[in-house]
Measured scan of single mutants.
Amino acid sequence: MKTQEELTEIVRDHFSDMGEAATLYVQVYESSLESLVGGVIFEDGRHYTFVYENEDLVYE
């Protein structure tokens, strides 16, 4: 099982292909040891929320 830090790095790496991230945040109260819930805000103003669970990243 991966730590939240490892899950955060996986998510950060995925979003790095989409541009320069200004902020990546984790909603600790919705996350667990198995999943990471949060969002990313890019330098150009785009904002996505995400759920990373079971090696699957879903974002909108």
Rank of each mutant, 00 (worst) to 15 (best):
E43H: 09
Q4E: 10
S31M: 10
K2H: 07
S31T: 06
E43K: 12
Y59Q: 02
D44L: 06
Q27K: 11
E6G: 03
F42W: 04
E53M: 13
I41V: 08
S35A: 08
V37S: 10
E60W: 14
M1P: 13
V37Q: 08
M1C: 15
R46I: 04
R12Y: 07
M18I: 08
V26Q: 01
E20W: 11
E53F: 11
V37Y: 08
D17Y: 14
K2Q: 07
D56L: 15
Y29M: 04
S35V: 14
T8V: 15
V28N: 10
D13V: 12
S31D: 07
E53P: 01
E34L: 07
Y48V: 05
E30A: 08
Y48G: 01
V58D: 04
Q27Y: 14
Y25L: 06
T23S: 09
M1R: 06
D44K: 00
Y52A: 01
E55D: 12
H14P: 02
Y29C: 11
E53Q: 13
E43Q: 11
Y52M: 04
V26E: 03
D56I: 15
Q4H: 06
K2T: 05
I10L: 09
N54R: 07
S31Y: 11
F42I: 01
G45W: 06
E6Y: 08
T23V: 13
S16D: 06
T3E: 03
G19Q: 02
Q4W: 11
L7S: 01
H14M: 14
L36Q: 01
Y48N: 01
A21M: 15
E6H: 06
L57H: 03
H47N: 03
Y59D: 01
L7H: 02
L57K: 01
F42A: 00
V11S: 02
H47K: 06
D17W: 14
G45T: 02
L33F: 10
D44I: 07
D44P: 02
V40K: 00
E55P: 04
A21Y: 13
A22T: 11
I41G: 00
E60R: 08
G39A: 11
E5H: 08
Y48P: 00
Q4R: 09
E30P: 04
L36P: 00
E6L: 07
E60S: 11
Y29R: 00
E60P: 04
V40Y: 02
S32Y: 09
T23K: 09
G45V: 05
Y59F: 13
Y59K: 01
T23N: 09
Q4I: 14
V37C: 12
M18H: 06
V37H: 09
R12M: 12
G39R: 08
K2D: 05
R46M: 04
T3H: 03
V51M: 06
S32K: 10
S16V: 07
E6D: 07
E60F: 13
G19W: 06
F15D: 01
F42N: 00
D13E: 14
M18T: 07
E53K: 13
D44Y: 05
K2N: 05
D13L: 15
E34G: 15
E30C: 15
Q27A: 10
D56M: 15
D56P: 03
F42E: 00
Y52W: 07
F50V: 02
E6A: 07
Y25H: 06
G38F: 09
G19H: 05
S32P: 04
H47L: 06
E30Y: 12
F15V: 02
D56T: 15
T49P: 01
Y48A: 00
V11A: 01
F42L: 07
Y25W: 08
V58K: 13
E43T: 12
E6I: 08
T8E: 14
N54P: 02
E9Y: 05
D17Q: 15
H47V: 08
E34N: 14
Y25R: 03
Y48Q: 00
V58W: 12
L24Y: 08
L36S: 01
V58M: 09
E9A: 13
Y29K: 01
S16F: 08
I10R: 06
E9G: 07
N54C: 14
L33W: 08
Y52E: 01
E43V: 11
I41F: 10
E34C: 13
G38V: 09
D13I: 14
A22M: 15
S16N: 10
S32E: 11
Y25N: 04
V58R: 14
E55K: 11
Y59I: 13
V28G: 09
G45I: 04
G39H: 12
E20K: 12
V51S: 07
V51C: 08
S32A: 11
V40W: 02
G45Q: 01
Q4V: 11
I10W: 07
T49K: 10
E43P: 11
Y48K: 00
V40C: 08
G38I: 13
Y59M: 09
H14I: 14
E34V: 09
S35R: 15
V58F: 11
E30M: 11
N54E: 04
Y25D: 05
E60M: 11
L57E: 02
Y59C: 10
L24G: 03
V26M: 02
E9K: 13
R12S: 04
R12L: 13
M18V: 05
Q27M: 13
V58C: 14
Q27S: 14
G39T: 11
E20P: 11
T8K: 09
Y25P: 03
M18A: 05
Y25K: 04
D17V: 14
E60H: 12
Q4G: 03
E6K: 06
V26H: 01
L36H: 01
G39F: 15
E53S: 13
T3G: 05
T49G: 02
F50P: 00
L36A: 03
E43R: 10
V40D: 01
E53V: 12
K2S: 05
D17F: 14
V28H: 13
D13S: 14
G39I: 14
M1F: 13
H14A: 11
L33M: 11
T49S: 07
E34H: 09
E5K: 08
L57D: 02
L33Q: 10
D13Q: 15
T49M: 08
L36N: 02
D44H: 00
G39V: 14
T8W: 12
V51N: 03
Y48C: 08
L7Q: 02
D56C: 15
T23W: 13
M18S: 04
S31H: 08
G38M: 08
M18N: 03
A22L: 15
V58P: 01
Y48S: 00
V40M: 03
H14V: 09
S16M: 12
V58N: 07
T49R: 06
T23R: 05
H47P: 00
D17I: 14
A22K: 12
Y52C: 11
Y52H: 02
D56H: 15
R12K: 10
T8A: 10
D44M: 05
S16K: 14
I41Y: 09
V28R: 07
S35H: 10
V58I: 10
Q27E: 13
S35Y: 15
Y48F: 12
G38K: 00
L24W: 10
E20A: 12
L33K: 13
E55V: 05
F42G: 00
V26R: 00
L7Y: 02
V28E: 10
V40L: 05
E60N: 08
D13H: 13
S32N: 09
V11G: 02
F50A: 01
D13T: 13
V11L: 07
G38N: 02
Q4A: 08
S32Q: 11
Q27D: 13
N54L: 07
Q4N: 04
S35D: 03
Q27R: 06
T49C: 14
V37E: 04
A22H: 13
V11D: 01
E5W: 09
S31P: 14
A21W: 13
V37A: 08
E34D: 07
V26Y: 03
G45H: 01
G45E: 03
R46Y: 03
S32F: 09
K2A: 06
V26S: 01
T3R: 06
T49D: 02
Y59H: 04
Q27G: 05
E9I: 10
H47A: 04
R12V: 05
E9P: 01
Y59W: 13
Q27F: 13
K2I: 09
Y25A: 03
V28F: 14
L57A: 02
E34R: 07
E5D: 09
F50K: 00
L57M: 07
T8M: 15
E5L: 08
T8I: 15
E5I: 08
N54D: 06
D56Q: 15
V37I: 12
E53R: 10
Y48T: 00
E60T: 12
A21V: 15
E30V: 13
S31Q: 12
K2Y: 07
L57V: 06
M18F: 10
L24C: 09
L57G: 01
V40H: 00
G38P: 01
